[in-house]
Structures are given as C-alpha cells and as structure tokens.
Design a protein around this nucleic acid. Sequence first.
RNA 1: GCUGAAGUGGUGGAAUUGGUAGACACGUUGGACUUAAAAUCCAAUGUCCAUUAGGACGUACGGGUUCAAGUCCCGUCUUCAGUACCA
Length: 987
Amino acid sequence: MTYNFNDIEKKWQDYWAKNETFKASNSSDKPKYYVLDMFPYPSGAGLHVGHPLGYIASDIYARYKRHQGFNVLHPQGYDSFGLPAEQYAIQTGQHPAVTTEANIKTYRRQLDQIGFSFDWSREVRTSNPEYYKWTQWIFIQLFESWYNNDSNKAEHIDTLVEKFAAEGNATVNAACDDDIATFTAEDWNNYSSEQQQEILLKYRLTYLAETEVNWCPELGTVLANDEIVNGVSERGGHPVVRKKMTQWSMRISAYAERLLQGLDTVDWTDALKDIQKNWIGKSVGASVTFNVIPPNSSSAAETSHKIDVFTTRPDTIFGVSFMTLAPEHELVSQITTPEQKAEVEAYIEKSAKRSERDRMADVKTISGVFTGAYAEHPFSKEPIPIWIGDYVLASYGTGAVMAVPCGDQRDYDFAKHFDIPIPNIFEGVDISEEAFASKDNVKITNSDFLNGMNYKKASKRAIYELEQMGQGEGKTNYRLRDAVFSRQRYWGEPFPVYYVNGMPQMIEAEHLPIKLPEVEKYLPTEEGEPPLGRADVWAWDTKTNTVVSNDLCHSALDAESTEDNGIYPLELNTMPGWAGSSWYFFRYMEEAANRDGVFASEEALKYWENVDLYIGGSEHATGHLLYSRFWVKLLKDRGFVNVEEPFKKLINQGMILGTSAFIYREENTNKYLSKGLTEDKNVLPIHVKVQYVNASDELDIEGLKTDGEFGEDFKDAEFILEDGVYKVGREVEKMSKSKYNVVNPDQIVADYGADSLRLYEMFLGPLEQYKPWNTAGITGVHNFLKKLWKLYHQGDDINKDNPDYYLHNPNTDDVYSAGKVVKRGFGVNDAEPTKDNLKTLHKTIKKVQEDIENFSFNTSVSTFMIAVNELTAQKCTSKAILEPLLVLISPYAPHIAEELWSKLGHSDSISTAAFPVFDKSHLVESSKNYPISFNGKMRFTLELPMDMSKDAIEKTVMAHEKTIAQLDGRTPKKVIVVPGKIVNIVG
RNA sequence: GCUGAAGUGGUGGAAUUGGUAGACACGUUGGACUUAAAAUCCAAUGUCCAUUAGGACGUACGGGUUCAAGUCCCGUCUUCAGUACCA
C-alpha cells in the first residue's frame, strides 16, 4: 500500500476536529499542563515556513505531555489588533475588521493543515469586543490602583483616599509623580473634588501625562524611534518633530524591583533574563543635594536653588570638580548668569534640534557651556562650577551629574576639553592619561574622613554623613521608564474613558465593552486628532450609559448657556498593541461557554495557574514579556489572579532564514552567466524565485521565462550554461517577499505532507538556533516516513509464484489485480521480539524521551531514522516493538502514527496512549568494541567481554598482533584502561 | 564600548559526565532495476599522500592542563543578537 499522505492527513484532521480530541477539560483528575505559543498577528501574507517552527515544537511537547498522562491546555488565538490592517484600511477603505477576519480564515486553514493539537474551542481574538471588554476592564483596575511601597504592592485607590483624609500625604510612601506637594489631611478635605482628582491622577498606576513624542505632521501620527531614519519618517521620508502630548502612561516603574526579583523564580534562558535585567537597569548609589551659591554671595547659606544628582559612587564625592546639567534641566534658565546667558541659550537651542538618538550616536564630540553659576560642595564647602552639556540626559536620573573626572571617563574627557581641574582621590593611581573607573583594589585619599577606605566602606560612610546633614541619602535608580499607553490609531482597543472638564472619568465596568465607533476614513483629522476624532457617535451619556452622538455633547453645545446634560466626549486615543497580549493567557483558561461576566473564573484560574511552557520569538524580550509580567503582578496584588509570574518556562525559537537564489547578468548585456562562469566578469547578481531552482542549484530556465510575474523580463535573455546547466548562486538571508526566497507551507504540505513538514522543521537544527531553510533537504525526512510506512507493510504475501506478481508495482510495493490494488500486506504480527528488536526500541525510547525533555527535537528525528533503519534491517514485524514505536513518533508525525495505530486495531486516537516505559535491561551489553589508542590516537578496535577485568583487558590488548605492530619493538611507558570505555597505550 | 550567544566536511547539523570527531540527512560520484525517465535499492564520500597495506593533518586562531581536549583553562580573531553618553 502506498503511503498516501494527503488522504491520511485529511482523514485524521477531520477525525480530531469531529471528536474534539484535543479539547481540554477544566475538571480532571490528571495533573494539568499548560503549553502556550505566542499567538500570531494575522497578516495578509499568510504563513511562510518560518512561522510554524515554534508551534510545531510546542505541539510536540503538548502531545508528549498527553502521552505522559497530563491534562494539557494547548490553545491558540490571534493578536488581531494592529497596524498593517489599519494601513491597508487607509489604502483601500476596507474596514480592518473585514480584512482581519479574512486573514484569520487563511491562518486557520494553514494551521489546520499542519495538524496541530490546538483546543480551538478556547480561541481568543484581541479585536473581538467580548475580549477587549476585559482589556478595558483591566485598564480600569490600573486606574483604580496605586502602588504602596510600604506594603510593596498595588492597592485600591480608596485606601489612598482614606490615608489622605486621615493624615495627608506626608506619611504615604507611594510610587508616584515626583512633582507632588505635601499636604495635610485638612488640606485634602478642603480641596475641591477636581483638585483631589488631579492629585490622585499622580498616584494612579495608569495616569495622564505630558509626554514628548516623535510627531510626524505629514502622517498625522506618532512614530516609534525605530520608525525614524535620519530625522525623517521611514515611510515616506516626512519630517518629524518632537512634540509634547497628553497621553496615558503605565506606571510600570513601580514594579521595577519586583520585575527584577521575579526573574530568579522563572525558568528562562540567562540570555533573556540578562536582556530584561539590562532593560530594568538597576543601579545602587546615593542622591546628593548640592546648594547653588546665589550670585553676589560667597556662601550657599540662604540659597533657594538646589540641584539633586544621582551617583553610584558616593565614595568619590571629594573628587567632584564641577557639575553638569542636561541642557533641558529646569534650573538652567534660573541659575545662568547674565554674562553667560547668550552662550547658554545658543547651546540649548542647538542641542534641542538634535534628536535624542543623534545625541546618543555622536559620543565623540565633547560640547558644553559654563552657566556662570556655582554650587557648594556639601563637605568641603568649596564652590563648584556648574556646566551644561548634552552628554547628560534629561531622561535619566535627575538630569544632572556631579562630575568626578578622576573616576569617570566622560567627566574626565569633559574636564580635559574645557581645562577644568582633575583632582586625584585614588591612592597610588596614575590618572594623567585616563580616568580610573574601577571600584576594586583602590583606597580613597585626599578625601577628609573617607581617607584610607575602600569603595564599600567609603560609600557607606559618605551616605551616612550626607544623611546627617540632610544633603542626601542612599538611593536605588532604575532605567526602566513608564510606558506610554496611548496610540493615535483606529484599530486598537478604545479606552473606557470620557472627559468632564478635561478630567478623565472611567466608565463603569458593567457598561463595557465600549466598542470601536465607525469612521468614514481611518486617517487623523485635519486638526491632527486621532482617527476616532472622525467618529460622529462618540460621546458618553452618563444618564443612559450609552455611546451617543457627539452633537449631544455638553461641550459641543453652547456650554456657557446650556445646562450640563451629562453627555461628555470620549477618549480619542486607542490602546497599543501590547494591551491585549498582556493577559490573553488567562482568557484561554476559561471555556468559551463560561466567559460571560468574567475574564476567567476563579476555579479556572486556580486550576491552570500559569503557563508551564511558553514558546515564542526573542523579539518580545523587552516588550510583551515585560508588560505581561507587570499586568500579572498588578492583577495578583488586587486579588484577581493567584500567580506572580505568567510564564514558568520560556523558550525562544530561532528564526528560519531563506536561501536566496541569484542569477548573474553580465554588465550591459542581456546575458546571464552560470555561477561558475562569473569569475573575473563584471556581473550583477539578481534575485530569482527559489521555486525555479532544484536541489542541485540548477535553474529551471523555462519556468523562469514563463513566470507570470517576471517571465517577460527574461523572455529574450540568453543564459550561458556550464556543463549543460545553469547554476545559481545561493545566499542565506532573512525570509522575505522582496528577496523571493519565501517558501509557503501550503506547497510543502501538498507535495510532501504535514508530517514531513513537521519533521523537517525539527530536523533542521536546534530549536533556538537561527538556520536556513532549503526545501531540497525535505526528501530526507519524507523518505524516512515512506520507510516507516513500509516497515509496517512488509508482509510476505508477495511471492513470485503468485500469478499477480507481475502486476506488482515496485514503486509502491502495491500488488494489483485487474487494475485494482489487492494488498500489500500489513505486516505486523505477534512474533516474539528479538533481542536486537528490543535493544533498538529501548534505546530509542530513552533517547527520544531525553530529547523531548531537553527540547532537542532535531536529534529525535535522527533517532527515529536510525530506529527504522535498524528495524527494517532486522526485518522486524513484531507488534510488541512496532506498537510502542508509533507512540514515540506520534508527537512528531501524528497523522501517520494515527493511521498505523488504527491499522493495528485500535479504535481510539493514539493521542492519549501511554508513553512507552524505558527498560534498561534491554541495553545491557555483554561485550564492548574497545577503541585501542596509542598516545591518544585511535588505531584499531577490539571486541572484548564487558565483564573482563582491567588486568585481563591490558594483557589481551598487549598481546594482540596489531598492538605489537604499532609498538614496533618499543616498550610502552604506561597503559590506561578505562573498562567499558577505552584503552590508551602511551609510549 | 558593554552584555549575551556562536564558530565542526561541499550543505544542515551530531558527539548528555573530557574517552572511537563528522551520527542522521542533503548534495555529489559510481552501480543495480528500467526501452527510457521518475521512483526504489546498493556502494563510496573530511583533506592530503599511497595501487594496496597504511600514514599525515583536521572541530576559527595561538598557547596551556591531561594518558586522552570539539568539550576544561588563558589569550586573540570573526559572526550574530541585545543595548548604548545610565552618572
């Protein structure tokens, strides 16, 4: 019988769907296991062969866990809000919901044909109102939370209001804006409700703030840093300006320490943890306050200006010889002396023109200006000149540094450049050439009470002294900044927010979802408002709790003369792409039928806890993976979920790269030279579609000339062959449409089957590694599947005496009679397995189990190949061997496994069959083929009994004729015998 | 610059605690079957020398430890990724 993969795969995919084979249950006696993929954004281009890599790996693991007796949750869904759909809508006018729906259909079809064991009944789509209702709900929870640094968790905003009413804000230790004035309980109670709201906004975990953004007036939108190239937009090349906008921000900085600590509790790679650690950027040091000496005075006693700095080296405080402020620092204009004013202003203007990125890129140029002002050293009371310089960033720390040129290279360079003194405070260190930045093995000198101390002691002492004087304290700084949460886009979650007199108000949870309004165009308005500004029905009626027409809005009417009718404008921004993906893993836990009224029920959350295995790309290292952890911690603090971390174990799959193909046009001709003929010639390499190249790098010239898209270009071209063929050049590049190296899984599935695709993607190499795709290699795994099929069909019913023999088709091993397949016997029987059979099976069990648990899927595939090659050579037909072998293979190649499993007489799916148990007794060997080496070089091997003693081995080896020949009369100095391993003769 | 990962045949890659380097595949070459092609099967395939027997070299490069190093240690180079004046 032929291995008819197309029919088999269709049959079992239908079977799984019909029987809901992979539907997970929320009540089970089995232990739970949650395997999750990062859900895809359904793009219009569909899947290429690189996309399913991680899904295949997680599917193998999920299927393996089912064989191991776990209740497995393995869901899938779509991150269906996003920019490409909006871009497409702008171009074509089609509603993003329509194109997204169509794209999802394509994705689903493509995913289905690969045979994934997803529980589709739990599918989520972030753009579905039933889903984003809960994204909006979480936003409200953030708004109604503040972070209490004393309890070290988020609490409901009501607890803060209580504190304010009882004791003001002096005793409150919260993560909040840094411009909050101190007030008493009495003050608080006398504030108007609007004033109170304004203050609370500075404490909430999501808050409105003026944020500087990259605004592109031409595109009417805000751009991310990497969407800007050389100061103009990447798309279209339009100018970009820095602009302040009021936007929602997420106070993720409140969680910096917990996000850092939590990394120790999860099983992620160190590489990924390092990325997050660097991103959070914790540094321990001190904040120091310098008093500015007022002009016409020599002391800072009656100063009104103070400069706070952050330093990681309080031990070097006596090495300070100047201070530098960022040009944007708010004190600059106040302290600059009249003489320096012109120069300072010119400098500020110059640096404002440069983007932050430009400033950071240009590290070499040293620039700065003296302000004319001086600060007083807290200990020595010496005056210290205050400079401004754009090497100091306004956005980090306090935007000001105490410069210690002897201990910091940037300060050193700055001091050298402007001829500022460089006092040396390091004992016995030469600083004539460069700064001494190390903290180790050095003692402080010329530093009053710090003399003779090391870094650790001196830092502690300096902080103590500063605290005594009220001039500083120990402080920990984080690089992690609050995340801007507003987007000036259409295709995202609307905020559940309306504004009364400019103050944001939350819509009550029971009225959610607030659905995206219809707009006639998906562009910003002429006034520069986001696309939702085009909606006509986009105001909130607080009486009926419905979205109503803008015309009814109180502010749209003549607000002076009209009575407030309780109808207010809704927020025009939408949420960013990461909103919906920051909590979707909880939504899967609840069965679709029970999702009304909860984002996931308590029972479901308790049962599934968090994701046991998460597989996805490393590009989400600092985005999605950080934001999800943040939201989970918030939900935990507020009592909505039970876990502190969303993803216990995480693996980043590598990218599959394309193997591009090139033809070479000789310059100024229409001649294309085969690769081997291009040397010393002036040729232009041109990408060609990889489907016109075969496994031997030969070009299908006819195919190329008749290509629907580019055939015309090559119609009259002359192809210069070598050895009768045209050889293309090859190069590994990222898989991309523009490089014509994209391989579509649909084609692979049609030609070789899903099982071949699955095996091949795994066979390519280690999961986490980047590796090139080359379709040519797939015949290797495809042949393996054919051999596997044959192993189960080596019945002996074909014999040459049979009159039908000559109807035997050797291609397929089928036997025909009257044009019909009679049979190629399904050859599995009850034969007693041989020792060799058992050995092959059990070494395969051992290896495959180890491989799956180590996520080393590529080596499993080799192991299967070896097993099938061996069993075929052994002519194994024993059910006792071939049945468990199918279970081993079924996570990797589920369709063929199901088919053969049913042929073995099973009526159930193989998917929950018990994983075979490894029995090491079958691997015990009686003899070992010892490598015999001389001075570490293997010369020959010798079969010796396993239980032979060390001495006996040595004797036997030394007496061997080949040993004598090798030694050629020499007497060995030493003979190393490691029983069971090796013999090494030295000398 | 800093941090992390990786350098093994023509190609993808294997070698789990130091113990036969190159498993398993692709490709290539030769052969069988076939009118022929495809498919299938068999054999060879790290490089170099040698008819053979066999030998020399070989895991980015240079050292070292060890009876024995792809694997451990020191230094150098290259590639990729993240991050970047972080005080």
